[in-house]
């Protein structure tokens, strides 16, 4: 279970919130541009440090201002898919997926099989040997998701993971994600703007505005005022 209490002074407002995600559940994080959604993910992953608060993952303290604990990013075991996917352009699709396993010291002999497994799961076996710099946006995104899942993280966070994907791949990745999160019983946070994403995969929903939670509840109960930010976002 993920329990986080975060406080961070941003340029325009102060981000202050408390979130809790149970194992095997997906929290959908919504809100208008600049509401602080990506900041929350950066704070959880350790790319940013909160001013105060605490982050506990399955009882393990990732960050605790009171006792001065701040675990480095690479030790947090958080699978993070950034908004612009960031598939390493100098590595092949397979090399990208293997990157996290190598960093986690997975035995060398096991890596090729695991890479192939993830290439098959993501339906990208045919591009295994292609450098990421020549892949399409959707392919890069699938590589990035596979790369994050392949490390076997304790927490999965994804920043708008479906934007670059076509309808068919989106449906497939959604099925895969929900199965992965449920089977491995890890908490997961997905930032999204699309109400359909939330209905498809979200268990609970948080809507952010200016760094605070303005609505939270179960995915099936989103009021129109809290949920639909699609219109205001799609202009970007």
């Amino acid at each position: 279970m993920l329990e986080a209490e975060l406080k961070k002074q941003l340029r325009d407002f102060s981000l202050e919130l408390r979130i809790q995600v149970n194992c095997g559940k997906i929290l959908a994080l919504m809100g208008e541009n600049g509401a602080g959604k990506s900041t929350v993910l950066n704070l959880l992953s350790g790319l940013l440090t909160p001013d105060t608060g605490s982050i506990r993952l399955n009882g393990r303290k990732l960050y605790d201002a009171a006792s001065g604990i701040s675990m480095p990013v690479e030790s947090r075991r958080i699978g993070y898919v950034l908004q612009n996917s960031a598939a390493f352009p100098h590595l092949t699709a397979a090399g990208n997926i293997a990157y996290g396993m190598r960093a986690h010291h997975v035995p060398k002999a096991r890596i090729p099989d695991l890479v192939n497994y993830w290439l098959d799961v993501m339906d990208i076996r045919s591009i295994a040997g292609v450098k990421a710099s020549s892949l399409s946006g959707g392919q890069k995104q699938r590589v990035a998701i596979a790369r994050a899942l392949a490390t076997g993280p304790d927490l999965l966070i994804l920043d708008e993971p479906f934007t670059a994907l076509d309808a068919e791949s989106t449906a497939k990745v959604k099925r895969l994600l929900t199965a992965y999160v449920r089977d491995l019983r890890i908490p997961c946070i997905v930032v999204t703007h699309r109400i359909t994403d939330i209905q498809d995969i979200g268990d609970t929903v948080c809507t952010l505005s200016r760094g605070g939670i303005v609505w939270q509840g179960r995915a099936g109960e989103i009021p129109d005022s809290a949920g639909n930010t699609e219109g205001s976002e799609s202009r970007n």
Partner: peptide
Amino acid sequence: AYEQTARTLGAS
């Protein structure tokens, strides 16, 4: 984003 992603993947 490249360096940040690499860090989250467990690289020092």
